Simulated assay, not measured.
Amino acid sequence: MPFDVFAEDGRLLLPANARLNDERVVARLRLQGALFVQPRDYDAWRRGMAKAVDGVLQQNAKLSNLARARPDLVRAEIPAMPGEEWEGQVVALDSAMQGRGTDKPWLTRVLEVQAGMRTLSARRMDEALFHLVYTGGNRTAHYTSRQALRCMLIAGEAARELKWDDERIALLDKVALTMNAGAWQLHDRMARHAGRIEDPDDRAQMDRHPADSAQMLQDSGVTDDAWLEAVRLHHDDSLASLPMAELSPGQQIAVLLRRVDRYSAMLSRRVGRGALSATQAAQMACLGADGRPDPIGSLVLKAVGLYPPGSYVTLASNESGIVLMRGARANQPMVAALLNAQGMVMAEPRPRDTSQPNLAVRAALRPEQMTVDPPLVKLQILWSWLRSQAVNAAASP
C-alpha cells in the first residue's frame, strides 16, 4: 500500500510501499483489528486512484489492465510529504525505546537519532521546531518521542544562549532523549486517555521514573555521572531557586530540562486536553510570581521566541496564520497568513513580517481556534524562499 498503516494507538504497523509477502506479518496485522491511515495520505491515494482510472479509461483500456497497473499508477501521484524527515526521527526514537533494556543496542539507536536530528536541524532549526510544535499540538501518536525531541531542540537553543559548548549541549541532548525511558509507554498511554492517573501502580511508576531511567542507563553501561545525575533530577524542583552558577553540570542540565519539559508539554495535545496557545504556555511555565519571566523562563523564550515556529497567531491586520520562523526579536516572528481579515481561507499562504507595526502579532491562538490546516507543501516553498532571502541578505555588502 502506498501509505503508512497504523494501529489505533498510533503505532506504525506497516511503512508505505512495504511488501506483504510474509505470512507472519499478515497474521499480526489481522490480530490488530481496525487499521488506520493518515487522512491526508488516504486523500492523496484516492486522488491518484481517480486520476489513474480516468487515464486508463480514456485510453480505452480494459479494467483488468487498471487492476494490474494500479499500485504504480497511484504511488506516482503521492509526493513525499513535507516534514517526513522530522517524523522519521520521531518514529526512529520511539522504535529504539520500544526495544530498550539492559543491552546497549537500544542506547546506540537513541544516539543515532540524536546525531541524525542534529545533522538535519543544523541549517533548518526553524523547520524542525515547526514540525515538532505543530504536530505536537495536533497529534497524540508517539507523544513521548515527540516530546523528547522537542525538549532536546528547545533546550539546546536555550543552552546556546548560556554559551554552553558543543560537548555539553550533546550531553544535554542525551538527557532529553533518555530522561523518560523508565516510563515511556506510560507517558504515551497518559496522552491517549483523559483524566488523571488513577491506578496506584501507574502513579508509583510515574513518581519513580527519573530514578528508574537513570538505573536503566547505568545497567546499559552509561558511566557519565552528569548524564545520570541530570536524568535522576529532571523533575526535582528543589534546585529551581538556586543560582545556576552554584549547581553541578548535571544539576544545571536538570534545571533547564525541567522547565523546557513543562513548557513543551503545554504546547502539546493530549486526549481530553487541547494544546495551549504559545502565550498561555509561556505564562504557565516561564513566568515567575511577579508575572515576569524568571531567568530560566527568559532563556527559553529568547531561544524559541514568544511565538515559536508551529504555533498559531492572529495579527494586527486581522489575518490569522501559523508561525514559520523566529524573528530578530522574541515577539516578531515570520508568519504564514492562512486566513484573511474576514476569516476566509486564503488561496495561497502569504509571508508576513510581524516586525512591521501593521502586521504585528496581536494574540496567540490555540490550535483548535484555527479553522484551516496549514498547506504544508506550500509552506515548504515559503521556507525555501525565506532561506534564499536570508542568504542573499547575508551576502549583500
Rank of each mutant, 00 (worst) to 15 (best):
D4W: 05
A7N: 07
E8M: 00
E8K: 03
D9S: 03
L13R: 07
P15L: 02
A27F: 04
A27C: 02
A27T: 06
R28V: 02
Q32C: 07
L35W: 04
Q38M: 11
D41Q: 14
A44W: 13
A52K: 10
D54P: 01
G55Y: 03
N60T: 14
S64W: 13
R68D: 14
R68V: 13
R75A: 15
G83V: 02
E84I: 10
E87P: 01
E87G: 04
G88M: 06
G88R: 07
Q89H: 06
V90Y: 06
G99V: 02
G99I: 01
G101P: 13
P105I: 03
P105D: 12
A115G: 13
G116I: 08
R124D: 15
R124N: 15
E127Y: 00
F130P: 08
L132P: 11
L132Y: 09
L132T: 11
V133C: 12
G136C: 13
R139E: 15
T140K: 10
A141E: 14
Y143T: 05
L149K: 02
C151A: 06
C151G: 09
M152Q: 05
L153K: 13
I154R: 05
A155H: 06
G156P: 05
G156T: 03
A158T: 07
R160F: 05
E161T: 06
A170H: 01
L172E: 00
D173N: 13
V175R: 08
T178P: 00
M179P: 00
A181R: 08
Q185I: 00
H187K: 08
H187Y: 11
A194Q: 10
G195W: 10
P200K: 10
A204W: 15
A204V: 12
Q215P: 01
S220A: 15
D224E: 04
L228Y: 12
V231N: 00
R232L: 01
R232H: 03
H235D: 07
D236M: 03
D236R: 02
D236S: 04
L239A: 03
L239K: 02
A240K: 12
A240T: 09
P243V: 03
P249R: 09
G250A: 06
A254Y: 00
Y263H: 15
M266W: 12
M266D: 15
R273I: 00
M284N: 12
A285I: 05
A285L: 01
A285Q: 02
G288C: 11
R292G: 01
G297D: 02
S298C: 04
L299N: 11
V304Q: 13
P309C: 02
S311I: 04
E319I: 00
E319Q: 03
G321F: 00
L324M: 15
M325D: 08
R326K: 08
A328I: 03
A341T: 08
V345D: 11
P357I: 07
L359H: 10
A363Y: 05
A364S: 12
L365A: 13
P367L: 05
M370Q: 14
M370P: 14
K378L: 15
Q389K: 09
A390V: 11
A393I: 10
